[in-house]
Design a protein around this nucleic acid. Structure first.
Lengths: 159, 159
DNA sequence: AGAGTTAGGTTGATGTGTCAACCCTAGCGT
DNA sequence: ACGCTAGGGTTGACACATCAACCTAACTCT
């Protein structure tokens, strides 16, 4: 019933393959992170950003910029992470607190990052192989740009 | 701080490009669906499956098989969709109800599918172009298989 | 000085996903 | 007949995401 004008068969097939890969990979990685280290994908993302910053400390809006999260999501999540002792909010000269990674947070990310990277390599990087993987990287950048461009004009026109 | 043994630079870069693309594309498509048609990605997925089935009706566990959702998520979501009039649960000879797409549900999916497909084509299919897109499809299947294979042995060993 | 506006952040309500526990029936072995 | 397990499904509690509303300080414009 309702075989629409959707995508044609080849497009359809590859698109669904992509969707399936994306879901499969994401659930697998997320499960692993959660099961073996008690971290969610979101925790991981925050901790990676903090651990890569100069002194393990950033302002919330910087985290917002790198993660692309909405500010309310960020605020909520940081509160939860603080409650769990992974980060802490520290007053500084500016009006707003800095977000600082704690010892526990640092230990957590140091422990799980290698295992996580290994899984990414095993199931994604190595399966693609260097050429296809590089190609994917380029195409991905183009897609991001395309969507970005559209949204600019979109907002300009108020669409 | 903490520049770990993670992925090497090229890998890192392409991997992050992929992650960014995936997030960008997903939020964009989801927003569009929600804003213009009041449907979430999850609603869409269920409605697509139902509308492609023989008579717009399936058993819940069949939906579970095609969507790969956990049964509790499915159950919750179907209840919400029923409340909104997109589907209905209909008793049949077997002990369990069949999930049936309603007129409203059918209208919704018929209305939004072409627009959704157009966006997928514009920002993804066409940006990749036929060769790269086909290549992605193949690689995606391989990734799914790799993860699948791992999970089998994983479960067999109780890891 | 006083009235908008903007940027950085928090809060609360609501919708959604996950996990574990549970219910019910059918099939199986004894 | 008895107990076991497995399959299909629901439920409740909790974690998380989203949206709109709000707060406060700073910046602008007059």
């Amino acid at each position: 019933m309702s075989k629409g004008p959707w995508l044609d068969d080849d497009e359809q097939k590859a698109w669904r393959s992509y969707l399936l890969m994306q879901r499969t990979l994401e659930t697998h990685l997320e499960r692993h992170l959660q099961r073996d280290f008690g971290l969610s994908k979101s925790d991981f993302e925050i901790l990676v950003n903090l651990s890569e910053s100069e002194h393990g400390r950033m302002r919330a809006f910087e985290l917002g910029r790198s993660t692309q999260w909405e500010k309310s999501r960020l605020s909520h999540h940081l509160s939860r992470m603080e409650k769990r002792g992974l980060i802490r909010k520290e007053a500084c000269e500016s009006r707003y607190p800095e977000i600082v990674i704690t010892e526990d947070g640092l230990a957590a990310i140091r422990e799980c990052a290698p295992a996580h990277a290994a899984r990414v390599r095993e199931f994604f990087v190595d399966v693609f192989g260097p050429e296809r993987f590089a190609m994917l990287g380029e195409a991905a950048d183009e897609v991001v740009e395309a969507v970005g461009k559209h949204c600019e004009t979109d907002c300009a026109l108020g669409s």
